[in-house]
């Protein structure tokens, strides 16, 4: 769905010269001082499969916002290639780019980006309006979408009358209204307080089930990344330091930096039972869990009985889980 190849973004004069050169590896301050350049993103490669949620995680200044903006060329990459659904975005003409933005990809913004002079309905209908859809049709569609995100009948409100969480629901609705195949999220929930954030994350999970979109999600919050991502990319100083499933990232951090990041994550939250099960055995079981279940969710079952639990995949027993396995995971958390 989305492929990114060798993508660079360098700010400053004669940026092309820096791409791929040894200077690119200079410390940031020195590069800025000597050449006036800043490398925001270097040599990024990624592929997002259809229906996948790909999370990019990093601290502020790591280049993740730059990356997501390069997908639809809100920021012009310095070099490299972006392909969206087979279309080469980086080579697209202005007109083609407009078509891609209008029909294939939509984006949800960090500070919501609602247009204060428009009603909610007109905000949600914005993308459709740009496409040239007629007023009645687009307003009808917008009203439906507002309902979908849980704001039925509020179309005539103005953005400033809403709470932050509600505003971002509108932002979400706006992105959904154009029915794109791909949705980009730029730290959409970072401005919300924790309870609301949790609620919105649930919303994303629900939407994912219901509308099945390909999503690229930027966040600086690890637990958000672990909750939502099928795969996570950790970004630092403009490059990917690790790309993998949540389990891989937590259990096999690629370097010290990632390790530091994931240190406080309770293993039981990310480790699936398959990772710690013993080979299948006969004998009585206390019950069964599906393969892929997180250890945390199996604890109660295992703890209730002395007997092991059966791990099942596709109706077949693939292993057993006992207290030892569970405790080994939990014990590792305490280290």
């Amino acid at each position: 769905m989305i492929s990114v190849r060798d993508l660079w973004k360098v700010y400053g004069p004669r940026a092309n010269r820096i791409v791929g050169s040894p200077e690119a590896d200079l410390p940031r301050g020195e590069l800025q001082q000597r050449f006036g350049n800043v490398v925001a993103m270097r040599d990024v490669n990624l592929d997002v499969a259809p229906g996948e949620v790909f999370v990019v995680m990093g601290l502020s200044g790591s280049g993740k916002s730059t990356l997501i903006r390069c997908i639809t060329r809100l920021i012009e990459p310095t070099s490299g290639q972006v392909i969206v659904e087979g279309d080469d975005v980086t080579a697209a003409s202005a007109a083609e780019l407009l078509q891609i933005r209008r029909h294939k990809v939509s984006m949800v913004f960090q500070h919501f980006g609602l247009l204060p002079h428009r009603t909610l309905l007109d905000n949600v209908a914005f993308g459709l309006e740009l496409r040239g859809m007629n007023r009645t049709a687009r307003r009808e569609r917008a009203a439906q979408t507002l309902e979908l995100v849980g704001l039925p009948g509020m179309g005539d409100y103005k953005p400033h009358q809403l709470s932050g969480g509600q505003q971002q629901r509108v932002g979400l609705a706006r992105a959904l209204a154009t029915d794109p195949d791909i949705m980009l999220f730029d730290e959409p929930f970072s401005a919300l307080d924790p309870l609301i954030r949790r609620e919105m994350q649930d919303e994303i999970v629900r939407l994912r089930r219901e509308v099945r979109k390909t999503m690229m999600f930027i966040t600086h919050d690890l637990s958000e990344a672990l909750r939502l991502g099928d795969r996570i990319a950790i970004m630092r100083d403009g490059r990917f330091v690790q790309v993998g499933t949540p389990t891989e990232v937590v259990l096999e951090p690629a370097d010290e930096y990632v390790a530091n990041f994931v240190r406080d994550v309770p293993r039981s939250h990310v480790v699936p039972v398959d990772a710690v099960m013993a080979p299948p055995a006969d004998g009585p079981y206390a019950g069964e869990v599906l393969a892929g279940t997180k250890v945390r969710d199996a604890v109660a079952l295992v703890a209730h009985s002395d007997l092991p639990v059966r791990v099942v995949r596709d109706g077949r027993t693939v292993g057993t889980l006992d207290r030892v396995g569970v405790l080994s995971v939990i014990a590792a958390e305490e280290l």
Binding site: H103, S106, M107, L115, H117, R131, R174
Partner: peptide, 26 residues
């Protein structure tokens, strides 16, 4: 962010001007 929003949804320069920037500069 307002101009970015407009751009990300595929507005032309004129659309951006008349639907977003001018109203917001009112």
């Amino acid at each position: 962010v307002a101009t970015e929003v407009a751009e990300s949804f595929g507005s032309t320069k004129l659309q951006r001007l008349f639907k977003v920037q001018l109203p917001m500069a009112r």
